Amino acid sequence: WIARINAAVRAYGLNYSTFINGLKKAGIELDRKILADMAVRDPQAFEQVVNKVKEALQV
């Protein structure tokens, strides 16, 4: 799951650890299995999560 998430978030200019930190700051409580599945099956929803994380990180 970690490898999938890392590959997906790198397309948005983040790395895995920064993304996970941003999830916590944004108050998003999705587990890694769901995030990895979302990255593959629903990229639009995953992009929305990434955008919320970037807002929380102020990137």
Rank of each mutant, 00 (worst) to 15 (best):
W1F: 15
A3M: 04
K54E: 04
A7P: 01
K54P: 00
E55T: 09
G13Y: 02
Y16W: 03
L57M: 11
G27Q: 11
R4G: 03
V9H: 00
W1H: 14
I28H: 04
Y16G: 09
L35F: 06
T18Q: 11
R41I: 13
K25W: 12
Q44D: 12
V59F: 14
W1P: 12
D31H: 14
I2F: 12
R32Y: 12
A39R: 02
A39L: 07
N21G: 08
K54A: 05
A36L: 14
N6S: 15
K52P: 01
K25I: 11
A56V: 12
W1M: 15
I20N: 06
V49Y: 09
L57R: 04
A26P: 01
R32Q: 15
V40E: 15
N21F: 14
P43H: 07
V50A: 04
D37R: 13
Q48H: 14
A7T: 12
E29Y: 15
V49P: 00
R41T: 13
L14I: 08
L30Y: 10
F46L: 03
I5D: 00
E29N: 14
E55I: 14
V50Q: 01
I20L: 06
R4W: 07
L14F: 07
A36P: 05
P43K: 06
S17R: 15
E29C: 14
N21V: 13
S17I: 14
R10A: 13
L23M: 12
Q48A: 13
A26F: 03
K54I: 12
K24E: 07
E55A: 13
G13K: 04
D31W: 06
V59E: 10
I28N: 03
D42C: 08
A26N: 04
E29H: 14
Q48L: 15
D37N: 14
N21H: 13
A7K: 15
T18N: 08
Q48Y: 09
D42G: 03
R41N: 14
V53H: 00
V9D: 00
W1L: 15
L23R: 01
V50K: 01
I5A: 01
V49D: 00
I2Q: 04
A8C: 03
I28D: 02
W1N: 14
D42E: 10
S17D: 11
D37Q: 10
Y12G: 01
V40K: 12
A39N: 04
A7E: 15
D42W: 09
A8F: 02
L57H: 05
G22E: 02
Q44C: 08
E55Q: 13
